[in-house]
Design a protein around this nucleic acid. Structure first.
Lengths: 127, 127
DNA sequence: ATCCTGCTTTACGTTTACGTCAACGTCAAG
DNA sequence: CTTGACGTTGACGTAAACGTAAAGCAGGAT
């Protein structure tokens, strides 16, 4: 029987391309909470999943505090009806935000394409 | 003949939903450079266009310095061939970045949808 | 036994993106 | 002519997201 794999802070930092300081900073803010074996931090798959979500959130420009509320949402207990309805409401809010960003990105890409077309035109005229 | 419309700092700030301090901050960083009539700032359509680009860049999480290099690119002189080729290279870099963000956004939206589906399932079971 | 390597906490430093006074100019209205 | 409303330039404050020593513990190699 192979037990569940674990990682050290150096390993996860290396794997995700961040510093150990960054990883601990996320822990300070409550975004991850690795197991402790004595004083050492032990990272499980769950922590790596969350770290992945954090970094994607960062690439999308979300502040860490907001990222925390989002990924906490995924792990939130969804037993009672009121809780589930609250979560569904939060999902709608998040989706509205993401949809806005999607439009922004698509617009930006479209404008960039149009700009490139004009540049290539100018380049052709010089030929 | 109607002359070109202009705006005061309060008007553009109001219109774009930011403070005058923010607008001046962007000017300090060289992202916009409104005309001066005496000591007063006069904003033209060009400035509003740039302000719109700045704020979209911000929604996408770009740092202001990077936003400056991007929108400066749009206004850069494209006379010489070397300059045009440089600009086209920059466009490719920007597009790679935007494509990554597009994927991130789409993934996030998809995961959110999947999460919502599971929540609705749980809710149905409670009915 | 001690030396090295990796991990730990504590704490101050830095950059970005503004907020927030303070103190003054200016111009039309009362 | 003075009172607002709006504009201006500093200059300092602040929150977020780490960077960067400093100093110490802990377990294996020599």
């Amino acid at each position: 029987m192979t037990s569940a794999p674990t990682w050290t802070i150096a390993q996860v930092a290396e794997e995700f391309g961040v510093t150990h300081r960054t990883v601990r900073h996320y822990e300070d803010l409550g975004l991850i909470s690795p197991e402790r074996r004595g004083t050492q931090r032990i990272y499980h798959r769950r922590d790596r999943t969350r770290l992945g979500l954090i970094l994607r959130g960062k690439r999308l420009g979300f502040p860490l505090e907001e990222i925390r509320t989002i990924i906490d949402l995924f792990d939130a207990p969804r037993g009672r009806r009121t809780q589930l309805e609250y979560v569904l409401g939060q999902i709608d809010e998040r989706r509205a935000d993401l949809d806005q960003r999607l439009r922004d990105i698509q617009d930006a890409i479209a404008e960039l394409g149009e700009f490139e077309r004009r540049c290539r035109e100018d380049l052709d005229k010089l030929a």
